[in-house]
Design a binder for these strands. Structure first.
Length: 273
DNA sequence: AAAGTACTCAACCGCCGCTAT
DNA sequence: TATAGCGGCGGTTGAGTACTT
């Protein structure tokens, strides 16, 4: 015998989440932390599959998420990581604090892919386009067209490997520096440190599991509290929940935290009243 | 102003590796 | 050891929105 089914498929709600459902999920996770997702719907009083709850939380409700479009330097980082890792969006997202795999995947498909094609770069191989129409047809899944080491050292048509360094020198990155905001600068610093980190670089090139980004160093704003406990470690959820509730009193934006949108803030306000 | 088209992105689907039973 | 659920992942879909004609 195997395990018990994760959820009763009958009576499970699908489709967009309501504010009420979000509220229940947020409250539950802030109170109990991330436990087994299978149990979450029942315990939180949601008629959702555990999988759906996990997705909603990780892609939308998580307080450490950045919001808004990726800036130019983030885009460049995605392009570069994609050149190394292919469509492994979760791996790419792991190197971009505050961004989700889904978000990066969407952005790749809707913005970056087109941008690269426009620039005459094949989004699959990250080399010069040989045949634009062919590239468009096959751009969805790099790994399917590459095998073994090619996955990690996407060869250019001329046989030379597309290296991290070559992307740094890439003109679009240089251009992006000119119009860089403070946020851009932070990401650029991250990107540069990535390039300078020999150990990480070798991990990337060898497809080993790279050293995890030290999320303890994350600072969401100069003035506000950092997310030391919440970012990737949910063992201190009581602290996290307390801090989130504190945010209501001071105003979330005062902390430089735009992670919660208006709906989220309303939810917290309602809960507090 | 209305209709048609293109775009965006949240959410679902199905697969895979791991693991509990 | 076999079976089946869980968690996670990448691919895809479709409703809502923006833009164009």
């Amino acid at each position: 015998m195997g395990r018990q089914p994760c959820c009763d498929k009958l009576g499970v709600k699908k489709g967009p989440w309501t504010a009420e459902e979000d509220k229940k999920l947020i409250n539950f996770i802030l109170t109990n932390g991330q436990c087994c997702w299978r149990a979450v719907p029942k315990l939180a009083g949601l008629r959702r599959c555990g999988k759906s709850c996990r997705l909603r939380w990780t892609n939308y409700l998580r307080p450490d998420l950045k919001r808004g479009l990726l800036n130019e330097s983030e885009e460049q980082l995605v392009i570069d990581l994609h050149a190394r890792l292919g469509n492994r969006w979760s791996k790419i997202a792991a190197r971009m604090p505050g961004r989700t795999d889904n978000e990066i995947k969407n952005h790749w498909n809707t913005h970056i892919k087109k941008k690269l094609l426009k620039m005459g770069i094949d989004p699959v191989t990250h080399g010069p386009l040989q045949n634009k129409t062919e590239a468009i047809k096959t751009s969805s899944s790099p790994e399917k067209h590459l095998s073994g080491s090619e996955k990690h050292h996407h060869s250019l048509p001329d046989g030379s490997a597309n290296t991290l360094g070559s992307s740094v020198e890439n003109s679009s990155f240089a251009q992006s520096e000119k119009s860089m905001s403070i946020d851009d600068h932070d990401t650029k610093t991250l990107f540069e440190s990535l390039c300078e980190d020999e150990e990480l670089l070798s991990h990337l090139l060898n497809e080993e599991e790279p050293p995890l980004i030290d999320t303890s160093a994350w600072e969401l704003s100069d003035n506000g509290p950092s997310f030391h406990h919440c970012a990737n470690n949910f063992t201190a959820w009581e602290d996290c929940a307390t801090w989130l509730l504190d945010c209501q009193d001071f105003g979330v934006h005062d902390f430089g935290l735009d992670s919660f949108n208006d709906v989220d803030i309303n939810i917290l306000n309602t809960e507090n009243n």
